[in-house]
Design a protein around this nucleic acid. Structure first.
Lengths: 137, 137
DNA sequence: AAATGATTTGCAATATTGTTGCAATATTTT
DNA sequence: AAAATATTGCAACAATATTGCAAATCATTT
C-alpha cells in the first residue's frame, strides 16, 4: 500500500485519517484546498484533524503549499525527491481560470532572478494563471 | 492632497474612509493585509467598509494583490502607470521572513517562462521569501 | 498478544475572518 | 439646494481557523 510507505518514510504514525487524505492527493489531478478535502463526499474526518494532518504533511515534506490570491492555501503532493525541509522553488504552478484546477508543472523550473543588493532569497514561488490544456477546445 | 487626486483619477467618489485607507498605503513601506488596516490604531472604519474599499481599489487598479501561502491576501499600491484591468505581471514581490514586510521590487521584472504546449498564460506572479535589506545586519 | 507509553483524534468551545441586506448617511450631479 | 446616486455602518449570519482536553488509536516493549 503506497500510502503507508510514504508515511513511514516520513517517520509518521500510520493512521486511518492520514492514509485517507493521502489517498485523496494521489487520486487528485491537481492541488487541493482544505475545503476540497473536508467536503469530499467519501470522507468523514473532523475539520481539526484535517487541519492538523495538512500541517503535519507540509512539515514532513509530503505536500507543499501553493500561494494564491484568494484567501485559500492550495496543497499539492511533493515529488518523490522531496524531503522534509526541502525548498519548493523548483517548479511553476498553473491555476486554470476556467476549470479552476491547479497543476504542478513539474518540468517548468522557476527561473532565478537577480534581486537588488542586500536582498537574500531563500525561497521563490511562481504561479501562472491562465487556461489549461484541458480547457482549450 | 494626493489621495483625492488618486481617487478622482480612478473615477471614484472621494470619501473619508477611502482617503484614510489610501493614506495608510502611502505611509506604509510595504504591503498591507486587511488585518493591518483594520487593526491600525488611528483608524475607526467598519470591517465591512475596509473589505469593500480594498475590493474597489483592486478593481480600479489603485492597489494589487500579492499571493501568499498563509491564508491572507496582501495588498500594495500600484505604480502610477497602472491602470484598471492592468495585469500585474511585471514585478517581483519580496516577503521578508524576519520583519515580515512585503516589498514590491518594482525594478525586478518577472521573467517569462516557457509553458508546456496547450497552456495559455494570462497572468504571472512571483513571490520571493528571504531576508530584506533592512534585516541583514 | 498484552501492556505500556506516546501520539493522534474528535468534541466542545471559542476566536477570527468574510459576506449579505438594508436603512441612514454622504457624495455627486442637475 | 434638491434630486439622484453611491457609500457607509449596523446587524445578522456564514465560513474558516485555533485550543484544550479526554478518549481512542498506534508503536514499542516485553
Amino acid at each position: 500500500m503506497q500510502q503507508e510507505a510514504v508515511l513511514k518514510k516520513a517517520g509518521l504514525s500510520v493512521t486511518e485519517s492520514r492514509k485517507t487524505i493521502l489517498e485523496l492527493f494521489f487520486a487528485s489531478e491537481g492541488a487541493l484546498a482544505h475545503a476540497d478535502i473536508e467536503k469530499h463526499s467519501s470522507i468523514n474526518i473532523d475539520r481539526v484533524t484535517v487541519y492538523r494532518t495538512l500541517q503535519t504533511f507540509v512539515e514532513s515534506g509530503i505536500i507543499h503549499q501553493i500561494p494564491t490570491t484568494d484567501n485559500t492555501i492550495l496543497y499539492a503532493l511533493c515529488k518523490d525527491s522531496c524531503e522534509a525541509g526541502h525548498h519548493h522553488d523548483e517548479h511553476v504552478h498553473f491555476i486554470c481560470v476556467s476549470c479552476n484546477k491547479t497543476n504542478c508543472l513539474d518540468d517548468v523550473i522557476v527561473p532565478k532572478v537577480k534581486l537588488p543588493n542586500g536582498f537574500l532569497p531563500l525561497q521563490t514561488a511562481m504561479v501562472v494563471k491562465g487556461t489549461c490544456i484541458d480547457c482549450r477546445n
